[in-house]
Simulated assay, not measured.
Amino acid sequence: MNGDTILNVRGLTVRFGTLVAVSDVSFDAQRGHITSVIGPNGAGKSSLFNLISGAIRPSAGQVLFEGRDMTGQRPDKMLAAGLARSFQITNLFFELPVRENLRLAAQFVENGRGLFRGIAASRVALARVDELIERFALQTRADELAGFLSHGEQRRLEIAVALAARPRLLLLDEPTQGMSHADTQDTEALIRSLAAEGLSLLLVEHDVELVMNLSDHVVVMHQGAKLAEGPPLQVRADPAVQAAYFGDAREASHA
Rank of each mutant, 00 (worst) to 15 (best):
M1H: 09
M1L: 12
M1P: 08
G3L: 11
G3T: 13
G3N: 13
D4M: 13
I6E: 00
R10N: 15
R10M: 11
L12M: 06
L19F: 04
D24C: 05
V25E: 01
S26W: 07
S26V: 09
F27W: 13
A29M: 13
V37G: 00
I38M: 09
I38D: 00
G42M: 04
G44I: 01
G44E: 02
K45Q: 11
L48H: 00
L48Y: 01
F49E: 02
G54A: 08
G54T: 05
G54I: 04
A55N: 11
A55M: 13
R57N: 09
R57K: 11
S59L: 10
A60I: 08
A60Y: 07
A60R: 12
A60W: 10
G61D: 03
G61V: 03
G61E: 02
V63T: 03
L64P: 03
E66F: 05
R68F: 02
D69P: 02
P75T: 05
P75Y: 04
K77H: 14
L79H: 03
A80F: 11
A81V: 04
G82W: 09
S86F: 00
I89A: 05
I89H: 14
N91V: 02
F94C: 08
E95C: 02
E95M: 08
L96F: 11
P97H: 06
L102M: 05
F108A: 15
F108R: 15
E110K: 04
R113D: 10
G114K: 07
L115C: 11
R117W: 14
G118P: 12
G118F: 07
A120V: 13
R123H: 14
V124S: 15
L126H: 11
A127V: 00
R128C: 00
V129Q: 04
E134A: 15
E134N: 08
F136S: 10
A137S: 15
A137H: 13
A142H: 01
E144I: 08
E144D: 12
S150W: 06
S150Y: 02
H151D: 01
R156Q: 15
L157R: 11
L157Y: 05
E158V: 08
V161P: 06
L163S: 05
A164S: 14
A165T: 12
R166A: 15
P167D: 06
P167V: 04
L172M: 15
D173A: 07
D173V: 05
D173I: 01
G178Q: 01
G178P: 01
A182H: 12
Q185H: 13
Q185L: 14
D186K: 12
L190S: 08
R192F: 07
S193M: 08
S193A: 14
S193G: 03
S193L: 01
A196T: 04
G198A: 06
G198M: 08
L199D: 00
L199C: 02
L201V: 14
L202S: 00
E205N: 10
L210N: 03
L210A: 06
S215R: 12
S215Y: 13
S215M: 07
D216G: 07
H217Y: 15
H217G: 03
V220M: 06
Q223H: 10
G224R: 00
L227I: 08
E229A: 12
P232H: 02
P232E: 10
L233V: 11
V235S: 03
P239M: 12
P239R: 12
A240L: 13
Q242V: 13
Q242H: 09
A243D: 14
A243G: 10
Y245R: 03
D248N: 14
E251D: 11
A252K: 13
H254A: 12
H254T: 14
